[in-house]
């Protein structure tokens, strides 16, 4: 174990731990744009710059391993000055349209400018003028807002392993693009949205059908209802509507989702949903009450039991419903109707 001091607090950590990880361990927050614990650290955004006693420059906390006796300051005057300068440079070509930007409220750039009182850039000069790539049905790419942290590229290449996007060009016009700039729709992109979920700014944004602000939403942690991977995710809810889904760090998905888990949620509040019991009358399904429906079902079950016995009734349970509901359906068939005629779609 190695002992280091961060902002005057001692912490013991394993060899090869980074300054960022050591700080996290004792609850000291160092700001980041490009860091993601699932990715190989690349230190490209520099915002996690810290001061190490005796050091000649300000190293990045996410890439620098600790050493015995290391003393770190995370918010010293020099560090704050450097961070302000980084933010100033980022703002130099960032559209300041936070009033209408969908990312407002979960934008790391906005948060850090607020934290370090950076209101506008002191640099004049060129602005980026990329066309928005609107070709994918689930999200769009606005490269004018990109801060080139690279997280989307590395999530796509190291975690999703689709390699659909990369850095294009060099210097000022550097941007995130698909090969030969053919656009997202023509690329190998599988619309998993894992790049969208990690984008710290408003460069990769889900196409939302609802107008909402992130601060108006509340997250509800749940399990995805599609395949059997059991991905964990947060439903963002505003006014009894799900407006977006964010992946969570579940044991089986480790922060990833697929196109269905991330984007295919609007069946939930869809106008075609069944809203009342339907009962067939004169050959047609008509709206009825719960009591009518229960009455009819129980009389039919009683009639079948009386004429042919309980084995003339069968129930198909559902791999789509909860464990508790599957338990109740088989209990209904076995304990109440009196038959083992219960099965579900595991075979199909």
């Amino acid at each position: 174990m190695i002992t280091v001091k961060i902002n005057g607090f001692e912490v013991k950590v394993e060899k090869d731990t980074t300054i960022l990880e050591a700080a996290n361990k004792i609850g000291i927050k160092i700001p980041t744009f490009c860091h993601d614990p699932r990715l190989r650290p690349h230190g490209s955004c520099r915002i996690c710059t810290v001061e190490v006693k005796g050091g000649r420059n300000l190293p990045t906390a996410c890439t620098t391993p600790v050493f015995e006796g290391m003393e770190v300051e995370t918010e010293s005057e020099g560090v704050v000055e450097a961070r302000k300068e980084i933010l100033d440079l980022l703002l130099a070509n960032h559209p300041l349209d936070c009033l209408t930007c969908q990312q407002a409220g979960r934008c790391a750039l906005q948060d850090l400018c607020f934290q370090y009182d950076v209101k506008e850039s002191s640099y004049g000069g060129a602005k980026k003028e990329f066309e928005i790539d609107n070709s994918n049905p689930f999200y769009y790419s606005d490269q004018n807002k990109c801060i080139l942290c690279g997280k989307c590229v590395y999530v796509c290449s190291q975690l999703q392993c689709t390699d659909a996007i990369g850095f294009a060009e060099r210097g000022f016009p550097t941007h995130i693009a698909t090969p030969f700039n053919q656009g997202l729709e023509e690329s190998t992109c599988v619309s998993c949205g894992n790049c969208v979920s990690v984008c710290p700014v408003g460069a990769l944004v889900p196409k939302s059908k609802e107008k909402f602000r992130y601060w108006e939403t509340s997250p509800v942690r749940t399990t995805c209802s599609y395949c059997g991977v059991g991905c964990q995710m947060d439903l963002l809810v505003k006014d009894n509507k799900i407006v977006e889904i964010q992946p969570a760090m579940g044991p089986s998905n480790e922060g990833l989702l697929c196109v269905k888990g991330k984007f295919a949620y609007n069946f939930i509040g869809h106008p075609d949903r069944l809203k009342a019991p339907l009962i067939r009358k004169n050959g047609k399904l008509e709206e009825g009450t719960w009591e009518e429906a229960y009455e009819l079902i129980s009389s039919k079950i009683a009639e079948a039991k009386e004429t042919l016995g309980p084995n003339s009734v069968a129930g198909l349970s559902s791999a789509r419903c909860t464990t508790e509901e599957n338990y109740l359906l088989q209990k209904l068939m076995r304990a109440v109707v009196g038959t083992n005629n219960v099965d579900h779609c595991a075979r199909l």
Partner: peptide, 8 residues
């Protein structure tokens, strides 16, 4: 005579 199908 009676088939009860839930979510299939």
């Amino acid at each position: 005579k009676v088939l009860y199908i839930m979510g299939e």
